[in-house]
């Protein structure tokens, strides 16, 4: 085997070998950590630096103290973006988790042809968010999109297209997130349910628990660790939702679908307010870590990530 040749050539000898022996664990980790610091910590530090300066286009001019932060806090559009992001997150995630858990509970006792059906079901979840958004754009387009024609117009849900007014536009962004992630979550819960021990369910049957009681008192508590992990992961991703907003609504109408990520994008690449955008980025970072660590702490005992 090729690796044998390499290993022989690299086989360390003498003091070098001792050094390797001692520090090998760290030498193996170092490149990955350095890379993560380069692409994570340094940009974050640089963002802090930028946020404290006045900028003109991409030029850093003078120290500005916390002026950028002050501007930001008094910018209603920033708060609006936070609000939109929160709405999307708070509505989309519980719905998709409950739907997926419900579907998984329907199917986990076994189906025929699961080996064909589960890859098919997974498919929407791994599509590029861009493709997912394009797909919905075609389905909801004008009066000729398949959903516009058969659903929206037929039941007179909204006039002027779903992207014409704020609430339907947010609703659509939420619906797309749900549509994209319910399949994966269903499969994840399905696998989680099949991994549960059978013994407590047998005991519960004899003890006289109804199906609802079994679900409430046994199944869901035993699934808590998984629910917590999936909640955390979906929370992280939904909070930075960008692609579907970019393709479908461009943050509109008005700022009604401007999420935090889209707000940041516009501040930089439309208004070139780099300093203020950096301040926003810093706040978003901090907010993100605070919220994630709250979520993490709430579920700490149930999360078995490490």
């Amino acid at each position: 085997m090729a690796t044998q040749g390499i290993a022989a050539a690299l086989a360390p000898r003498g003091r070098w070998a001792e050094f390797l022996q001692r520090y090998l664990p760290y030498l193996l980790i170092a490149p990955a950590l350095i890379l993560l610091i380069l692409v994570g910590v340094i940009p974050f530090a640089y963002a802090i630096y930028l946020s404290l300066h006045n900028t003109f286009f991409t030029d850093v001019e003078s120290f500005a103290g916390i002026a950028n932060y002050k501007d930001l806090v008094s910018d209603p559009r920033f708060w609006g973006a936070l609000r939109v992001t929160t709405i999307v997150t708070v509505v989309a995630i519980p719905i998709q988790l409950v739907m997926a858990l419900g579907l998984a509970l329907l199917f986990y006792r076994g189906v025929f042809g699961g080996r064909v059906l589960s890859p098919l079901l997974l498919f929407p979840s791994v599509l590029a968010p861009i493709v997912m958004a394009i797909m919905w754009k075609i389905m909801l387009a004008g009066n000729w999109g398949i959903l516009s024609y058969w659903v929206v117009e037929r039941f007179s849900l909204v006039t002027g297209g779903v992207f014409g007014s704020p609430s339907p536009a947010i609703g659509t962004v939420i619906a797309i997130d749900i549509f994209q992630w319910v399949p994966f979550l269903t499969l994840a819960f399905y696998a989680g349910l099949q991994a549960l021990p059978l013994a407590p369910f047998r005991a519960a049957a004899v003890d006289g628990a109804s199906r609802w009681q079994v679900l409430r008192l046994l199944t869901i508590p035993m699934l808590y660790p998984l629910i917590a992990v999936l909640f955390l992961l979906r929370f992280i991703d939904t909070f930075k939702i960008f692609d579907s907003v970019f393709i479908l609504t461009r943050g509109g109408p008005g700022d009604s679908t401007t999420t935090i990520s889209y707000y940041l994008f516009r501040s930089v690449f439309e208004f070139w307010e780099i300093g203020r955008a950096a301040a926003a980025a810093v706040i978003v970072f901090v907010l993100f870590f605070v919220m994630t660590s709250i979520v993490y702490r709430v579920f700490h005992k149930r999360l078995r990530l490490i």
């Binding site: 013994a199 407590p200 047998r202 005991a203 004899v206 008192l217 046994l218 508590p221 035993m222 808590y224």
Partner: peptide, 13 residues
Amino acid sequence: VAMVFEDYSLYHR
């Protein structure tokens, strides 16, 4: 009826 199982079958958590 009530049952005691070989593997105890207690309710975890």
